[in-house]
Amino acid sequence: MGAVSLAELAERYRPEILAYLVRLMGNEPDAQDACQDAFLRAQGALDRLRPDSNLRAWLYRIATNSALGAARRRARRTARTVDVDLDGLPAGAGSSPEDREQLRRVARAVQALPPKQRAALMLRRFHGLGYADIAASLGGNEAAARANVYQAVKRLRAALEERRG
């Protein structure tokens, strides 16, 4: 697909891919690394992209793989999970200490979701992807994509209710 250059791709999609990676990884430095990695991989794979493929879903797929790969490498290196960087997330400055604690609970519950569920939830909720595109981005079929999103919502709800009670 010679018509698109990587520079064009990056200019057009980098902001939303980076935002997705921040949501997925919970902090901006890791997301920046993964984003860079994703566009490098995209460059390498650009000539294998079929003309009829969904470019956006394809980029989300590459970005997801970069993020999950980075998470696996990190898990091998260190046993700890990275705590969420609230300041790197949109609601960064929660007003009161209680509010920040609540936001931190939400962030932990999100980070505790299985990666595919987390990815599916973010794509559906914040990136406007339908289930066919989510399936194209994460693998599997539409029904599995939908199940991942719904399961994520259920777990999130359960986690927040449990902690409140």
Binding site: R14, P15, E16, I17, L18, A19, V22, R23, E28, G88, L89, P90, A91, Q102, L103, V106, A107, V110, L121, M122, R125, F126, V153, L156, R157, L160, E161
Partner: peptide, 21 residues
């Protein structure tokens, strides 16, 4: 109410599209 709250908190934390810019 419980699902609304969960989705609301999710949006509050991750919703605004400030990140990436």
């Amino acid at each position: 109410a419980a699902y609304r709250q969960a989705l609301g908190e999710l949006t509050r934390l991750y919703g605004e599209d400030r990140i990436g810019r």
